[in-house]
Design a protein around this nucleic acid. Structure first.
Lengths: 249, 249
DNA sequence: TTTAAAATCGCATAATAATGCATTATACTC
DNA sequence: GAGTATAATGCATTATTATGCGATTTTAAA
């Protein structure tokens, strides 16, 4: 049986039930569970299924409304967000980058929390607009459509003029040696400036972002005051970061 | 039974009853109460349930998604939007205000339409970010949360420096004598500046906005190049505008 | 305050998942 | 068709997650 057939077979299973078990599939197809898990991983990366401990669920094709933002790995991101809450204090001036990890974080901020928050992300701004006591300042500029953030000289200019207490950065890749790197050049420039403008830098990242590199460097680990992941700080998966002296949470 | 199934099972229980008991669930599913409690904790962390001593309640106030914007009188606004399409030309520099009428309009813009659009409205920007050929520039500033638009000195400053071909203005009130008026002072200032920056001014308004006055004046009818409503231009309900020489569409 | 039920905590255990590596199958080149 | 590179698979090992149990703390009501 070809891998592709097997994938189809798995997807067909969802016509009968909305979950499948790893073991059942392995028995039925008479192959190892490892292979089924690898299949799950591939289907998950295509966004077709959601993996859970012991099996998988079908992801329901949400109507592609512009405004409903689906958050990949939301559970993990909620854990990250909850840990990050401890870095918030009332009255701070905060810079918030974009990304779904930060979005999850923002959803968790207490409704009456008072602070000044700068952001360049449309979804983050929409989310934070629910908080009556947050003074929200949107950093204008040219819109980068895929990420829903503004970039360019205008953004950098605004950032160069402000001084924030703390910056929460959602990242796409984090590596022990390379530090924080980005896919896009423009975003890397903006993030650099954000870090410059802030006294403290808190990085929010789910573990899938860790030990990855992208072309454009933002900063080294030394500039980062805290790395918040869904893992426990002692986890072996981030031991290399601990060894390198990173402050993990 | 997978953990996620169990969570769904618990959530389904709320269809029958307001409250679920820890013990009952443990007995029914033949698992320990500890597990049920851990499930409760997870569901609670997701904001789905409220824990109480001995069980849990459903959180009903599932505050509707921040991102789904409900449009009142959408039918009428779609008619307005369709008429307004005729004022669009490829390659223009356009200023777009906020409001649900303009949002409906933006939804109708052909997907491959090419232009440069300035806006200060978060929902409008989200919507327009779907158009690959639109150069979208967001005007940053302090966010006015109810209207989801930026206001203040920064916005005015940006506007004072640009020159647009056309400005599409969604309005809250339009009156034959007072012209265009606004509820909020800050928004009125910004709109004034937008009109200043544009060669042509197109007003989009459903008929419920017509013949109403608000405290802060934006401009008189003479500055408006076109008024687009869902009514036919000859409708008696806007005869007074026609008599005053307004260009109705 | 007392008391019993319920919740939390720490730990042990078992199930499941990820990882590195060896083996086998498949595709590709000459 | 032989040889080689690549991908797929299974196995052993290690890591992670789920769950139950006992000890301890908290809660709600007598």
């Amino acid at each position: 049986m070809l891998k592709k057939e097997r994938h189809q077979f798995i997807m067909d299973k969802f016509k009968d039930a909305d979950k499948v078990n790893t073991i059942d599939l392995a028995l039925e197809l008479e192959i190892s569970e490892d292979t089924i898990r690898r299949d799950f991983n591939e289907l998950h990366n295509k966004g077709l299924i959601e993996k859970v401990y012991g099996g998988a669920f079908l992801v329901k094709d949400k109507s592609r409304n512009v405004f409903d933002i689906s958050i990949f790995n939301e559970d993990k991101k909620i854990i990250v967000g909850q840990k990050a809450l401890s870095f918030l204090s009332e009255g701070q001036v905060i810079i918030m980058t974009g990304g779904t990890t930060n979005l999850s974080f923002c959803k968790l901020i207490p409704i009456d929390f008072a602070a000044t928050i700068y952001t360049y992300s449309l979804p983050i701004a929409m989310q934070l607009s629910q908080h009556p006591n947050i003074e929200l300042i949107f950093i204008g500029g040219k819109l980068q459509k895929n990420a829903m953030v503004t970039v360019g000289i205008d953004v950098v200019q605004v950032l160069s003029k402000i001084k924030a207490d703390v910056c929460f950065i959602g990242v796409s890749s984090l590596d022990v040696n390379q530090g924080l790197t980005e896919m896009g050049y423009e975003v890397s420039i903006v993030k650099k400036e954000m870090i410059n403008a802030s006294d403290k830098v808190i990085v929010l990242a789910t573990s899938d972002k860790i030990n990855r590199k992208m072309p454009h460097k933002v900063c080294g680990l030394d500039k980062i005051d805290a790395i918040v992941t869904e893992l426990s700080p002692g986890s072996p998966r981030i031991k290399n970061f601990a060894d390198a002296g990173a402050r993990l949470f």
